[in-house]
C-alpha cells in the first residue's frame, strides 16, 4: 500500500465533519470552542498535505499553517475571555441561556 494525497484528504474530511457536528450538537460553550479547534486542526492537516505533495521546495502550505496556528491561539484567548465575561453576567455556560437578543 502506498500513501497518497487522497488518504490525507479523506482523513481531513472526516475530521472536519466531526468538528461541524460538535459545533452544532453541543450545548456547553467550552465544547463549542473545542469543536472550533478541531476544525482548525483539520484545515492545518490539509495545508500540510498539499505542501508535501505540491511544493515541498518552498513549503508555502506550511507557512500558512503557522499563520492559522497563531490565529487559533488568538481566537481561543478571545473566546474564553468573552466566555468569562458572559459567565459573570449570567452564571451559566449553557448556550440556550444566551437568548436575550431574541425578542
Amino acid at each position: 500500500m502506498e500513501l497518497g494525497l487522497v488518504h490525507y484528504l479523506i482523513l481531513v474530511a472526516i475530521l472536519f465533519c466531526i468538528g461541524i457536528l460538535g459545533l452544532i450538537i453541543s450545548r456547553n460553550i467550552v465544547k463549542i470552542l473545542i469543536s472550533i479547534e478541531i476544525l482548525l486542526n483539520a484545515v492545518n492537516i490539509n495545508f500540510a498535505a498539499f505542501a508535501n505533495f505540491g511544493d515541498l521546495d518552498e513549503a508555502k502550505g506550511q507557512v500558512f499553517a503557522i499563520f492559522i496556528m497563531a490565529i487559533a491561539a488568538a481566537e481561543i484567548a478571545l473566546g474564553l475571555a468573552i466566555l468569562i465575561a458572559c459567565y459573570n453576567n449570567r452564571h451559566s455556560i449553557d448556550i440556550e441561556d444566551y437568548t436575550s437578543l431574541k425578542s
Binding site: Y8, N44, I45, A48, Q62, A65, M69
Partner: peptide, 17 residues
C-alpha cells in the same frame, strides 16, 4: 500526521501551541 508529511517544524509547533 505532520511528521509523516515532512513538516517537522509544524509538528513541534503543534505540540507547543
Amino acid at each position: 500526521i505532520f511528521i509523516l508529511l515532512n513538516a517537522d517544524f509544524l509538528a513541534i509547533s503543534q505540540i507547543i501551541i
